[in-house]
């Protein structure tokens, strides 16, 4: 209930700055549009490149762009700031987790953004209706939704882990930046992983980033080789990453010296 209240309060705050939200969505759409244009040039007269048709490229980048509002976010910096500025002092003595609070605030922002983005998504899909074809069975739709949810959990854990590294580092933005670069390359945000040089595909298999975006989007496109196996791997990565997060959190708390707050 307490987090639900935080969620509602953040929604109220964000609604005060609607122009800002709309501009964020336009800003977020620029890079995928350029990517799609680039791949269209590469396609030329060919019907497909590496198994991706024009429709697949549009659907892929649409899914990555709008999936971002479901899966991703940028709350590691907020967690880091709470630790650095001593804001955490208040929450440590209350039945209230600062990491969860920052996560909930981010979800509220994303929720509002997604609501604003949906009509844009509908218009774009309508404009490219001759290209965009998603034909999934009921089971595949269910698996895709589960995969997106697992991707969101995995992403949240990675972000939270980066955030709590502020127990050791004064600035965590270089780590967050590095993680985002990895998400672009190994997570398939930059380009479908199967089109990348083979070295990156091999490395990506051993890192969690692939399971945040690429796996759910591939399922949406009906390109997941073995969906239940991929879901299993997502769960394994969640468990492993959460274990690492817990260890860092406990060690960090022992080291923490609250100033201010």
């Amino acid at each position: 209930m307490k987090y639900w209240r935080t969620f509602l309060l953040t929604i109220q705050t964000e609604l005060q700055y609607r122009a800002n939200l709309v501009l964020w969505i336009i800003e977020g759409a620029i890079a995928p549009v350029v990517m799609v244009l680039a791949w269209f040039v590469v396609l030329g007269n060919r019907s497909e490149v590496g198994g991706y048709t024009r429709g697949d490229f549009i659907t892929y980048y649409l899914a990555v762009t709008f999936g971002w509002y479901v899966v991703a976010g940028t709350f590691s910096q907020m967690i880091g700031r709470a630790i650095k500025m001593g804001e955490m002092n208040i929450t440590l003595v209350k039945p209230y987790n600062v990491v969860l609070e920052k996560m909930v605030r981010e979800q509220a922002w994303k929720f509002i953004s997604l609501l604003i983005a949906l009509p844009i998504l509908a218009v774009v899909t309508y404009m490219f209706r001759s290209y965009v074809t998603v034909s999934l069975s009921g089971v595949q739709i269910f698996m895709t939704m589960v995969s997106f949810a697992l991707g969101a959990i995995l992403f949240a854990i990675i972000e939270a882990t980066i955030g709590i590294l502020a127990f050791w580092f004064v600035e965590i933005w270089p780590i967050a930046d590095t993680s985002m670069a990895c998400m672009n390359v190994f997570g398939g945000m930059l380009a479908p992983l199967t089109l990348m040089p083979i070295f990156f595909q091999r490395v990506a298999a051993y890192l969690p980033f692939k399971y945040v975006f690429f796996v759910p989007v591939s399922m949406l496109l009906g390109k997941g080789d073995n969906a239940s196996f991929e879901l299993g791997l997502q769960v394994i990565f969640i468990v492993v990453c959460f274990g690492i997060y817990s260890l860092i959190w406990r060690a960090g708390l022992k080291r923490y010296e609250g100033i201010g707050g």
């Binding site: 600035e171 270089p174 930059l190």
Partner: peptide, 30 residues
């Protein structure tokens, strides 16, 4: 702060280099 930024910021150049390699893995003329 300088060294942290100096080493992490060129990462985005590496990301774009990977994209260039990916594009030219599919075509020789862009």
């Amino acid at each position: 702060a300088f060294w942290m930024a100096a080493f992490t910021q060129p990462l985005w150049a590496i990301v774009q280099m990977i994209f260039i390699e990916t594009l030219y893995g599919q075509t020789s003329n862009f």
